[in-house]
């Protein structure tokens, strides 16, 4: 009975894993094909099923009819990382305040302020495109990295606040009280006691910020022209009258790589540092 259960369990895991991994394998295989290799039916194994070629990869690094991916890559890293860091810092501070201190302006209370943050993500992005465009244009920041960073902060901050408020609400208040009793002022309490215990929350919020920032196409597309191209836009620009599946596959793998790496690194923090046991 137990063996059967285990067998079924592993079968389910195996099926699900292949479902998740298959697109990557498919992309990997496709990235080494040529036009012939793609159109001549389903083939999987290089050298056996089809003759591998580096055409797709070459087109990412300045090959014929391709792009140079380094520029957009660097832009994406700069914009995503700086926007995420700023959002995380501001968002964590805001979230601690919202979690621990009582704010009140008329009928507006803490919960309403928290909701106000997240409500910005409820709007369809298209509604924001025009105002953002006009604002950046007025400020002379259209098609520049700082302009994009500002817009991305506006997009990522609600996520950081939302995740961290929820996290801080689950950090026992006794920890704050104990720090006060030990002689900390509110800032010391936050920096020395609460923050070191909040690594898992910071990792989750940071991951969300990086993923959302990295994957955004819409604002990267609407607020830039040629000077500051971000990675998703650059990848789309590969497309032409004949879809270059090989180049797109290679680009897709290149753009997913840092997120995969990040997920593996973050996973270690998440499983190690849960907060259970700070009190008790």
């Amino acid at each position: 009975m137990r063996t059967l259960y285990l067998a079924l369990k592993y079968l389910a895991i195996l099926l699900w894993s292949s479902f998740v991994v298959f697109p990557f394998l498919w992309a990997l295989s496709t990235s080494f094909k040529t036009a012939n290799g793609v159109t001549s039916g389903a083939t999987y194994l290089p050298w056996v099923d089809y003759e591998p070629s580096l055409l797709g990869w070459e087109s990412l690094f300045g090959g014929a009819g391709g792009i140079n991916i380094f520029g957009p890559y660097l832009n994406s890293v700069i914009v995503t990382v700086s926007a995420s860091v700023v959002s995380l810092v501001l968002g964590t501070l805001a979230a601690y305040g919202l979690s621990r201190f009582r704010f009140r302006a008329g009928f507006v209370k803490n919960g309403d302020i928290t909701f106000f943050f997240i409500s910005q993500r409820i709007l369809p992005p298209i509604v924001l495109a025009m105002p953002f465009f006009l604002m950046l244009q007025t400020l002379g920041l259209l098609d520049t990295l700082p302009g994009l960073v500002i817009v991305y902060i506006a997009l990522l901050l609600p996520i950081a606040v939302w995740v961290m408020v929820d996290f801080f609400n689950n950090v026992p208040r006794e920890l704050d009280e104990m720090a006060w009793l030990d002689g900390c002022n509110p800032i010391q309490t936050f920096l020395r006691v609460i923050l070191p215990n909040s690594l898992p929350g910071l990792v989750v919020a940071g991951m969300f910020c990086l993923i959302f920032g990295w994957n955004d196409f819409f604002f990267a597309f609407t607020l830039t022209f040629t000077n500051t191209q971000l990675l998703p836009v650059a990848i789309v620009s590969l497309n032409s009258s004949v879809t270059p599946w090989w180049a797109l596959s290679a680009a897709c793998l290149v753009s997913v790589a840092p997120l995969l790496l990040l997920a593996f690194l973050a996973e270690r923090f998440l499983s190690r540092g849960n907060l259970a046991g700070a009190v008790r």
């Binding site: 026992p172 006794e174 920890l175 009280e177 104990m178 009793l181 006691v193 070191p196 215990n197 907060l275 046991g277 700070a278 009190v279 008790r280």
Partner: peptide, 13 residues
């Protein structure tokens, strides 16, 4: 003032 709570509060980090 020093206060000890019902459940131990420690700085985990």
């Amino acid at each position: 003032i020093a206060q000890v709570f019902q459940v131990p509060v420690i700085y985990r980090s």
